[in-house]
Amino acid sequence: MVNLKQHSITSVEWNTIDSSVFAAAGADDGVSQWDLSVESSDVGARADGLKDLPPQLLFLHQGQSEVKEIHWHPQLPGVMISTALSGFNLLGQHR
């Protein structure tokens, strides 16, 4: 199960195409994508391991160490780029 402990946020960036979506990186070595337009009633039955997660959480990546920045790609809508001590990742969004 995913652990959403409180940690320092190292980077936040709003999506330039969808004003309700933002990406965040944190000291917990995670990169997350959130959609603030999603409401609890929008979500159907969730699997047991996911029912404790907020419905606004669209994506969570925990494969890097010491994530410092997250940015939306300027030419590829829905693609995020994260930089970390362990390298950089391209993370895509599918809707």
Rank of each mutant, 00 (worst) to 15 (best):
V2H: 15
L4C: 09
L4K: 12
L4E: 13
K5R: 10
Q6N: 13
Q6L: 06
Q6D: 13
H7Y: 06
S8Y: 12
S8C: 12
I9Q: 12
T10M: 03
T10Q: 00
S11R: 04
S11G: 06
S11A: 10
W14R: 08
W14V: 05
N15W: 07
N15H: 04
T16E: 08
D18E: 10
S19P: 09
S20F: 10
S20Q: 14
V21Q: 13
F22G: 07
F22D: 08
F22V: 08
A23P: 00
A23L: 05
A24S: 15
G26N: 06
G26M: 09
A27E: 15
A27V: 08
D28M: 03
D28R: 11
D28Y: 13
D28S: 05
D29P: 06
G30H: 10
G30C: 10
V31Q: 10
V31I: 15
V31T: 07
S32H: 06
S32F: 05
S32C: 15
Q33A: 14
W34Y: 14
D35N: 14
D35C: 05
L36H: 02
L36N: 01
S37F: 03
E39D: 14
E39M: 15
E39N: 13
D42M: 03
D42P: 13
V43K: 11
V43Q: 15
G44M: 07
G44A: 07
A45P: 06
A47G: 12
A47S: 14
D48P: 07
G49K: 14
L50H: 05
L50Y: 10
K51W: 07
K51G: 04
D52G: 13
L53S: 09
L53V: 12
L53Q: 08
P54L: 08
P54D: 14
P55T: 04
Q56Y: 05
Q56L: 04
L57A: 12
L57T: 02
L57R: 07
L57Y: 10
L58P: 00
L58Y: 02
L58H: 13
F59Q: 15
F59K: 14
L60Y: 11
L60I: 09
H61G: 03
Q62Y: 03
G63N: 01
E66T: 09
V67R: 03
K68E: 12
I70A: 13
H71A: 11
Q75T: 01
L76M: 05
P77G: 01
P77M: 02
V79M: 06
V79I: 06
M80K: 02
I81G: 01
I81K: 00
S82F: 00
A84M: 00
L85C: 03
S86G: 02
S86F: 01
F88C: 13
N89T: 08
L91Y: 00
L91F: 01
G92D: 11
Q93H: 09
H94L: 14
H94N: 12
H94G: 06
H94W: 11
H94E: 15
